[in-house]
């Protein structure tokens, strides 16, 4: 039955399209499109010099309810994380993605801050991750699952803090895809585009933040260029 369904569906499609195309040319067109993965229309808004790119990213992320802070020295990150937690009356605990950059931070300088690496559990209130890229066009973060990043970290905790090196800030989604392809590890199980904290307008079309994903998204832009 399974094979019947497959050949049945593909057969119906072929009967409909075959008369309108040259078979060899069609196959070549498909192979070429997949190999070139050419860009289509790219908004001018996102084609900016780096300094303005940062400004655009910040403005777009804030417009959807994320908060953004600049950091020049990575050694400051443990302090900023700890201060962020105390400012929001949160327990001094953070679940951190086992990313080399995050593991290399001097966590021992804030001994009262409890740091655990790994995937998120249901009890974690705050997570810290990096991102493969930040996309200025819409203030979007691009996260990829792997041994250094767990998808649950972006969804289970109520507060998500992201450390984004400015060298990873790009204008468009397409540049983000190129950065991911350049890693040479293939397409990960999960790529998340995250734009602001979770929200819903399902009750009386009233916008509310904090649906199922985090209610707060805090982005630390790390000047590394």
């Amino acid at each position: 039955m399974a094979d019947d369904a497959r050949s049945g569906i593909l057969g119906t499609i072929r009967r409909a399209v075959e008369g309108q195309r040259d078979e060899a040319a069609a196959r070549a067109a498909v192979a070429d499109r997949l190999a070139r993965h050419a860009r289509n229309v790219i908004p001018l808004r996102a084609q900016l010099p780096p300094a303005q790119q940062v400004e655009l990213f910040q403005r777009m992320a804030q417009a959807v309810g994320a908060t953004v802070e600049l950091v020049t020295d990575p050694a400051r990150v443990p302090h900023m994380a700890a201060d962020y937690l105390s400012n929001h009356n949160l327990p001094a605990r953070v679940r951190v993605a086992p990313d080399p950059l995050l593991q290399s931070l001097p966590w021992d300088r804030r001994p009262m801050l409890e740091v655990a690496f790994g995937r998120a559990t249901a009890d974690d209130q705050t997570s810290l991750t990096t991102a493969v890229a930040g996309v200025a066009e819409t203030g979007t973060l691009m996260l990829a699952s792997g041994p250094d990043q767990a998808t649950t970290l972006a969804f289970l905790p109520t507060n998500h803090v992201v450390l984004l090196p400015l060298s990873r800030l790009v204008g468009t989604y397409e540049e983000g895809w190129d950065m991911l392809r350049a890693r040479g590890r293939g397409q990960p199980r999960t790529v998340n585009f995250v734009t602001g904290p979770s929200r819903t307008a399902d009750i009386e079309q009233t916008p509310q933040v904090h649906a199922h994903g985090p209610g707060r998204l805090h982005i630390l832009l790390l000047a590394d260029m």
């Binding site: 397409q187 199980r189 998340n192 734009t195 979770s198």
Partner: peptide
């Protein structure tokens, strides 16, 4: 401008 979450899923873990 963009929805909060756009997720690309490829195979199992």
């Amino acid at each position: 401008e963009f929805s909060t979450y756009t997720t690309f899923s490829t195979g199992p873990r």
